[in-house]
Amino acid sequence: MATAAVWLTFVTAHLVLSGQWWVWHLVDVVPPPLFTVVPLLLAAGAVPSRGGRRPVAILASAALLFGAPLSGWNVPALWTSQHASPPGAVTVFSWNTEYWDSDGGPFYPFLQGQRADVYLLQEYLNDGDVPTPVHDLDRLRAAFPGYAIAVAGELVTVSRFPIRQAFPLIRSTENGWLGEFEREKILRTDLDLGGGRTLSVYNLHLPVQISPGLSPFGGAFWRTIRDQDAQRGPQWRALAADVDGNRGPILVAGDFNTTPGMEDIRKVPSRLRDPSGLLPTVYPATYRDRAGLPRWWRLDWAFTSADVRVHEYRFGGSGGQSDHRYQLLRLSVG
């Protein structure tokens, strides 16, 4: 019974502190399925105990009730199917490239093979102690002739449709690439779909909360968590403000560095909808996409306004070129 009480206390504390206290980011990284698995195991373990069965069942049920929305299970996948995409549907490919073309794999052929109309790509930078921009736009243009390209910091949007305007929601006020990398985390591009239709696409990569390469016994580890949290807040607020002021069709997609178990995911603007019910898997996860490693977390998301209809939504493997799976959506506007 004590264990069940401790777990219920933990879940309650998580609901209160996640997204509110930067130290709690250490707890935020727990695999979301634990919010359902643990109370079920506690209840099952109490079955042989006649005296403790009832109180444990009550405590475990409460923990399950509070924790189920945080667990990441995609129950609608059990009965929902993909829709047939109508002619003219727009194909959008979103992917955290894990440092642009850094593993020597067939990077550009992989991108071309998606046959997408719009590419939302994150981490257009080199891997190193200091982030460094990649100067590869000529090669990108050669791979996608006729496509429009917008770049802000580490974000690249490639579109078959003309780009009416493109800008980061937060502009760096510092000179140099490092300021752009740290501040320009949401790139908005307004795409001219033709027929008087415009789709605002937000390419997003929120700062990761924890640096696994630092020791928790050093001050740099804790400063990094605090500083990254301070960077995430303004990005969420900028997204909310811009979406609120944009009454046209909207798609927001990218690497949120946010799992279903983090309260930060509730900061997504309320007028946006989550099409995850279309995903053909009961437990959708995008991280980590490496052979032999557990894939317990979903960090990549897509959200649309009500006037955007999503016909198909799925994740796909990176072929070992990234630690993130990609997102692919087929949608229509108007």
Score class of each variant (00 low, 15 high):
residue 298 R to K: 13
residue 180 E to S: 12
residue 153 G to Y: 02
residue 20 Q to Y: 10
residue 58 I to E: 08
residue 4 A to P: 01
residue 62 A to S: 07
residue 221 F to W: 14
residue 136 D to F: 00
residue 131 P to G: 10
residue 283 Y to R: 05
residue 71 S to A: 15
residue 40 L to V: 11
residue 333 V to P: 10
residue 161 F to Y: 13
residue 156 V to I: 08
residue 65 L to M: 04
residue 274 D to V: 00
residue 168 P to V: 07
residue 81 S to P: 07
residue 187 L to P: 08
residue 164 R to L: 15
residue 9 T to H: 03
residue 296 W to E: 11
residue 331 L to E: 08
residue 118 V to F: 10
residue 10 F to I: 05
residue 228 Q to K: 10
residue 13 A to K: 01
residue 271 R to W: 03
residue 56 V to P: 01
residue 86 P to R: 02
residue 59 L to C: 01
residue 64 L to P: 01
residue 173 T to S: 07
residue 174 E to F: 13
residue 261 G to W: 03
residue 124 Y to K: 00
residue 179 G to M: 08
residue 56 V to E: 01
residue 233 G to I: 13
residue 150 A to D: 07
residue 251 L to G: 06
residue 111 L to Q: 10
residue 280 P to H: 04
residue 175 N to M: 15
residue 23 V to K: 00
residue 20 Q to W: 11
residue 28 D to N: 05
residue 102 S to Y: 15
residue 210 I to K: 02
residue 277 G to Q: 11
residue 23 V to Q: 04
residue 259 T to Y: 00
residue 166 A to Q: 06
residue 212 P to T: 10
residue 202 Y to K: 10
residue 171 R to V: 07
residue 194 G to N: 08
residue 14 H to L: 00
residue 48 P to I: 01
residue 174 E to V: 06
residue 32 P to L: 00
residue 113 G to Q: 03
residue 170 I to G: 06
residue 187 L to H: 04
residue 117 D to K: 02
residue 95 W to S: 11
residue 65 L to N: 00
residue 84 A to R: 10
residue 34 L to Q: 03
residue 276 S to Y: 15
residue 177 W to N: 08
residue 320 G to I: 08
residue 232 R to D: 11
residue 15 L to S: 00
residue 125 L to A: 07
residue 328 L to Y: 14
residue 225 I to G: 00
residue 70 L to M: 07
residue 164 R to D: 14
residue 168 P to R: 02
residue 26 L to T: 09
residue 121 L to R: 07
residue 279 L to D: 04
residue 119 Y to V: 09
residue 134 V to H: 04
residue 139 R to D: 15
residue 164 R to P: 04
residue 273 R to H: 15
residue 266 R to Q: 13
residue 216 P to C: 03
residue 154 E to K: 12
residue 114 Q to S: 13
residue 205 H to P: 13
residue 99 Y to F: 15
residue 116 A to C: 08
residue 318 S to Q: 04
residue 12 T to W: 01
residue 9 T to F: 12
residue 39 P to I: 01
residue 79 W to H: 06
residue 215 S to L: 11
